[in-house]
Simulated scan of single mutants.
Amino acid sequence: MTVLTLVQGDITREHADALVNAANSSLLGGGGVDGAIHRRGGPEILAECRRLRASRYGRGLPVGQAVATTAGRLDARWVIHTVGPVFSREEDRSELLASCHRASLRVADELGARTVAFPAISTGVYRWPLDDAARIAVETVRNTTTAVEEVVFVLFDGPAYEAFARRLG
């Protein structure tokens, strides 16, 4: 059974086998978690992302999928990049957000990762409501069969931490 824990802080400072990056589909860096991971991780991450774009992901990484690269200078072995959906009041995209978590855990299993750190995917510029994102993340991780021993949700601020704490109960 996978142990779920919470930490309030900066995911780029977290020690884990794999850090999940809330990436944009270009895989070439951006704002928020994506930009922070690329900045702190260094050019090795960007170089691998460019190779992925030149080969398998010429049009970018699709929403809900995941792919791994080196972690560069981060205190991890790998970064698992996943593209979360933009929140919409008109269209239920919950399954895509759940897919980000399942796909990331599947990639972690393929890599042999035992500890994985997740941010609050899609809650920044993609505007997913925190309480709903926390519900989807926690339920999905709890209900996904994986060899990962520990999942740490690394939440940037107090409101995100509290939303996830309510879901962990």
Rank of each mutant, 00 (worst) to 15 (best):
T123C: 15
A113V: 05
V125T: 15
T5K: 14
C100V: 10
W128T: 10
N24C: 10
A54V: 07
T146H: 02
F164K: 01
I136Q: 05
W128A: 03
W78D: 01
R56Y: 08
A120D: 04
G29V: 09
Q8N: 00
A16P: 10
L52A: 12
P159R: 01
A54H: 11
I80S: 02
G29L: 08
T146G: 03
V152Q: 05
L168S: 04
A163Y: 08
V141E: 01
L74K: 05
S26D: 14
T12R: 02
L52P: 12
S122T: 06
V152K: 11
L105F: 05
H101N: 09
V33W: 09
P159S: 07
E14Y: 04
R102M: 06
R135G: 10
P129A: 07
A16E: 09
F118S: 07
A23Q: 09
V79R: 05
L105P: 10
E162C: 00
F153G: 01
H81L: 11
T5I: 08
L4E: 11
D17R: 04
R13H: 10
P119Q: 08
V86T: 15
V83S: 09
Y161M: 03
R51Q: 14
A76I: 06
S26T: 15
I11P: 04
T12N: 05
G42K: 03
A36C: 08
P85Q: 07
E150T: 15
W128K: 09
T5Q: 06
Q8M: 12
E139T: 14
E162D: 13
T140P: 13
E91N: 13
M1P: 10
A71I: 09
A66T: 08
T146Q: 00
H81V: 11
A76S: 15
R56V: 05
S99D: 15
H81C: 08
T5G: 00
L155D: 04
Y57G: 09
I11M: 03
G72D: 12
A54T: 07
A163I: 01
A76F: 03
R59D: 15
R102P: 11
V33D: 10
G158W: 01
V67C: 12
Y57A: 04
R167K: 13
F153T: 03
E14A: 08
R59F: 11
V151K: 03
T2I: 13
I136R: 00
L105I: 01
A113T: 06
T5P: 03
I37D: 06
L97P: 14
